[in-house]
Design a protein around this nucleic acid. Structure first.
Lengths: 280, 280
DNA sequence: ATTTGTGAAAAGATTCACAGCT
DNA sequence: AGCTGTGAATCTTTTCACAAAT
């Protein structure tokens, strides 16, 4: 999950569960593909497969939007595309600004997926004077000094932050002061924003860390020894184990589960002094 | 949430809830920052604030790992960094390959957040012969032809896909055949993979769409008058201008909206009143 | 005097299973 | 005959609130 909500705790939006909202774009993408192939109708089963979910979930999700299907037949593709687009607010045009035009910012500026939905990149903004005027994705980079003016003139309410972590909080404050109320944050930092502002974050390294966790467990599953620390396998009930034959083939892990030495190495910075304490 | 799990449904890893695993990297980042400032201990309240969660959740999360705190005092920062790192499998080295060195792939290759954890970019791979040998982030791009060899020689078990959508499925199959068991997918497509392979996806446009949903609702909240029908005259109305200031004017939703709209729509026939839907 | 760790309650999400409509 | 829509059951996650520890 590159995702994370920050605000909007209580007010579950218009009765549509957050989990459902998060899947609507998935359905929309699958439907758009069907639409392009001129497929007129689709069953919950087919659409669910295309979107990578199961059909019960999909039907439940759609039930929050209304009764848009036809029993015995399925869903009308075009109609559903429209309904979901409207629900997501994609039938209107959303100007966005991207702040921080480094590698990632440039990648985002070039990313076609924005434009193809209701999003329009209204401006690219960077703090480096040397960047100013340089064209990225066919549009000149503007300087941070003009941030407020750009936001206001374009009626921007969604900002994308792709700056280094250190700059993100300040950038968010300026965006918000100028009128932005939704932020997509790629900087690896927690933004603190006032009530009423939504923040979603995408953190590339967090995703990898979650994968590493599962990867590690896969490795540990077959080498049921090697135990440093609490491997609590017995109590965990190996019965449910993924004992799939499709076990990870590639023997990767050179050293499986080193202990304190590894910690010291990792942390070994200027003051890296790892307490030797280590019960469990 | 840009995030989404694809596999791993039943086997809840080693008793640690998936939701908790997803937050561990967050805690780790906050702890690392404290560690760098040589803060020796931290309370659940402080750490929770730094990580952007509430303290009850944090304590519950930590309780799945063990009893690593001291009542009346808090948590030892260094010790906790080590424990979480170990739990996530970051005390070992994870070689990863990035396939698809376009804008995004290059951004990922340059992203410092990988290297600073246990991740090492072992190779950059692209299908374009013209890219071969060109240095990106100080390392030569290699051709897809050598993919299998690279995976095997480096013992890679985690692959990052940053190719266009059309190439992603095939790339994933080759990665998996060569031994990769975890994939981070940036291509906007659903990968179908065998059991035992984990896929996480990050979709930039999905995140924006979720923000748009909430943004739209905010707008509708204050413009609770304007009894428009089920009409969503978005782009027509304002073009660029969602008005200035914090409150975008373009409201889409009539408060009474859905029920009536749905009913009307259904009466109108299977397809009748479907307005021109913007094709992607 | 604080702050953890955790049962128990509450809220939320998913899955089941089938009535009801086409 | 087939497929949606949805209550009911189940599972997961979050929050509460307080005993236990230092």
């Amino acid at each position: 999950m590159a995702t994370g909500r920050t605000h909007r705790p209580a007010t579950r939006s218009r009765g549509i569960p957050e989990a459902t909202v998060a899947r609507l774009p998935l359905y929309l993408r699958a439907l758009t593909a069907l639409s392009e192939r001129s497929v007129p109708t689709v069953s919950s089963e087919e659409l669910a497969t295309a979107a990578g979910v199961n059909s019960a979930k999909l039907r439940k999700d759609f039930s929050y939007l209304g009764s848009y299907g036809t029993r015995g037949v399925g869903y009308d593709v075009e109609y559903l595309v429209y309904q979901i687009s409207r629900e997501l607010g994609l039938t209107q045009d959303w100007p966005v600004v991207i702040v921080g035009i480094g590698n990632l910012g440039a990648a985002l500026a070039n990313y076609g997926g924005f434009a193809s939905r209701g999003f329009r990149v209204a401006a690219l903004i960077d703090a480096d004077p040397a960047m100013a005027g340089k064209p990225v994705a066919g549009m000149p980079v503007q300087h941070t000094d003009d941030l407020e003016k750009i936001i206001e003139e374009n009626g921007v309410s969604i900002g994308v932050i792709a700056t280094p972590a250190g700059a993100a909080q300040q950038v968010s404050e300026r965006l918000i002061a100028a009128g932005v109320t939704s932020i997509l944050n790629f900087a690896p930092t927690v933004l603190s924003v006032p009530d009423g502002v939504d923040v979603r974050k995408v953190d590339l390294s967090i995703e990898l860390q979650i994968l590493a966790f599962h990867e590690q467990r896969k490795a540990g599953e077959e080498a049921a020894a090697a135990g440093t620390g609490p491997v609590a396998e017995a109590a965990a009930g190996a019965g449910t184990g993924t004992g799939t034959g499709a076990a990870p083939a590639a023997a990767v892990e050179p050293p499986a589960g080193r202990a304190a030495a590894a910690a010291a190495a990792r942390k070994g910075g200027p003051e890296g002094d790892v307490p030797a304490v280590m019960p469990a």
